Amino acid sequence: MTVTLHVCITCRAGQTLGEGETTPGERLHAAILEAGVPDGVGVVPVECLSACSQGCSVALSAPGRWCYVYGRLSETNARDVIAGASAYAAASDGIVPWRSRPEIFRKQSLARIPPIAVVPEAAE
């Protein structure tokens, strides 16, 4: 099962950017890709995670697992984001033990969302 790491690439992190300048969110996305994404984790750039007042943000999700949104991130946090995504991928329910989380995931969690119940499709 693949875990999805959503990265907000439109995030400006409160900065005023000039025409054509790279957003902090795009820089975070690039740094995550450069750091190397572990097997079982797909990175998906998204236009907005609606955490605009919280700096750069990412979200982790997978079917049947708790989902998380983390904020106040920058490209300097890329390796910690990857470590957190890897730990999340190893947790069958999405709940990583507190001490196994990178510090930024302990302190910068914005939301924890319950798993969506999966309903089997009716037989045709």
Rank of each mutant, 00 (worst) to 15 (best):
V37E: 09
C8W: 06
I116S: 06
R65A: 13
G55D: 13
C48L: 03
C52G: 11
P38K: 03
A123M: 10
L17V: 00
E103W: 13
E124L: 13
F105T: 02
H6W: 07
V43W: 04
S50A: 14
V58F: 08
A85E: 11
I95V: 13
V43L: 01
A87I: 08
T16L: 12
P115D: 05
V69N: 14
Y88F: 12
P45K: 05
L33K: 12
T16F: 08
A62N: 06
A30H: 12
A59D: 05
V43S: 01
R72Q: 12
A59P: 05
I82A: 09
Q54C: 10
G71A: 09
W98S: 15
Y88W: 02
R65D: 13
A111D: 03
G84F: 00
K107W: 05
P63T: 12
G20M: 13
S86I: 06
I9N: 05
A59T: 07
E75R: 13
E19M: 05
L110H: 03
T4H: 05
R101V: 07
G40M: 12
T76D: 15
A123L: 14
I113Y: 09
G18E: 09
C11N: 10
R101C: 08
L17I: 00
M1I: 05
S74E: 09
L33A: 07
C67Q: 13
A122H: 09
V7K: 04
G36W: 00
I104F: 03
Y70M: 13
G42Y: 06
P102E: 01
Y68Q: 15
P114I: 05
V96T: 08
W66C: 08
T2H: 07
P24M: 11
I32S: 15
L73K: 06
S109K: 06
I113H: 04
